[in-house]
Design a protein around this nucleic acid. Sequence first.
DNA 1: TTAGGGTTACAG
DNA 2: CTGTAACCCTAA
Length: 366
Amino acid sequence: METRSFALIMSSPRSVVSTMELLYFNSDPYPDEMEGGTTFSCSDSCKKVFGLLLMGAPKQKWTSEEEAALKAGVVKHGAGKWRTILKDPEFSGVLHLRSNVDLKSLISLDVFLGNCTDKWRNLSVTANGWGSREKARLSFKRSHQFPKHDDNSMALSTIVQSDEGIVDAKPLAISRGTSHIAGPKRSILRLDNLIFEAISNLKEPNGSNRAAIAIYIEKQYLTPPNFKRLLSAKLKFLAANGRLIKVKRKYRIAVNSAVAEGRSSSLLLLEGKQRDSPRVDKDDIKILNKSQIDAELAKMRNMTVQEAAAAAARAVAEAEVAMAEAEEAAREAEAAEANAEAAQAFAEAAAMMLKGRNTSKLIVNA
DNA sequence: TTAGGGTTACAG
DNA sequence: CTGTAACCCTAA
């Protein structure tokens, strides 16, 4: 009896062993057959023994198929739901040699872009002084910070319209290691959404000022530490391209703004480049509202693993580009704001001072 | 079960 | 030898 079980375990990857439970060891009778993916029940000491026996076993490189399934699984269930992904019959076939702990490696957008391993978790010094592992961690936290309510939409919440073709399964598989996809500049979408939501919900007749918008968003959502800068940059950008109208430091939504209402779904994620109509504006920003995101998710559930993974990878790649761009914009905006918003900062500082509050922060900007 | 620090094996 | 992919350990 023991011999037989032993053989079974030896043929399992170490990662499976680590999650084994000694179900069959103590079960009577033993199951006649064990298929790949069968989990065992095992005491801790048992695990140690078999873990030792497996030491030196070759590492199991992730196949492109497994990566695709993993990415699709994250799209479907969300990052962090490793066990759920594993148990999903849609992915369990492909991922049956992996444990939930193996899956968790995919914790960041960087990783999502093509590195389904712990690569980005391993500290290594980079030019900007941040270890890539640390970077991955921050990236992950950041991506989880915005949607306070709906984790499931996270994966798609920052999708922007692509100017590129659909990444199909093959290029996806060989894209590992390429963490940035070259292409025309795109803008972050999620914050746009929040700004529009804030302005329209605040319902101020002449529009809302930056502070009010910030307060609204901060009340509704968890915001990143650099949120103020991002918001400033974004407001400026949206006003510059006419999607917001700025009058006396108050922003209102432009009537012809391309807010998602009534927009054809043909502009959305899954269609990608298949929409061949000429672009009017290279900075055109598409916004997915909640129902559209849900629709996209529904579509993805009907896709094959490869299709979903391709779409997911593209979405995340674009989100990553968007995030990088937003941060870049924020950096650039810092200098610009010193001039453009100086008057505002002074005014606010003065007002604050009158109220006897600490003005140091605001004066710094002036 | 997961996140995250730590360790090991392997390729270059 | 070094960097990285894969894997281990464990607090919460």
